[in-house]
Amino acid sequence: MTDPDDRADRAGSADADGGGVASTWDGPSQPWLLNGDCRGRQHRSLLLEITTRAVFPTVLVFSVYLLLVGHYGPGGGFSAGLVAGLAFVLRHIAGGGGDLGTGRVVRPPTVFGTGMAVAVLSALLPLAFGLGVLESAKLGVTLPVLGTIEVQTSLLLEVGVYLLIVGVVLELLRSLGTGIERDLDEAGEQPES
């Protein structure tokens, strides 16, 4: 069971950190601390939460980088998806299961379902251009500042894989992470210290 004092404590801290500061023009628009529902006070770590807050966007950007360079270098949809998934795992560890639930607008199955659909359709797409299944081509795109960028059409498949993996990690966090915590709470077990 979550300690009622713990909840009050957290609500207070969220208020102090984020509630009132949005009025100033340079204040953060969101609370710095994660607003998740942690099972026990001893499970919270200020250092981890702040670090997560700082690292989370960086890891996501890095995962997109891995996705894009994957055709010629180390990376690709699978590893990029895992890296992005790890960012969410970090938030889950720092903020508890509730943290991922609060800001989420799509269900994880929708994410990995879309990913799989994109991957399969990208396998079939070459048929429309008279090529065989899964064949890929190189497209040159000229952008104003960056110059010519070459894109492999197999990137689309990688995007599908990326979404698939991210969706699966989120689903695992939901079912095995938050789900088990909830079951423990319902069973009335105290969190381990």
Binding site: P109, F112, G113, G115, M116, A117, V120, L121
Partner: peptide
Amino acid sequence: LLGAAVSVV
């Protein structure tokens, strides 16, 4: 596979 993806979404 596509059908499975659509069924999930």
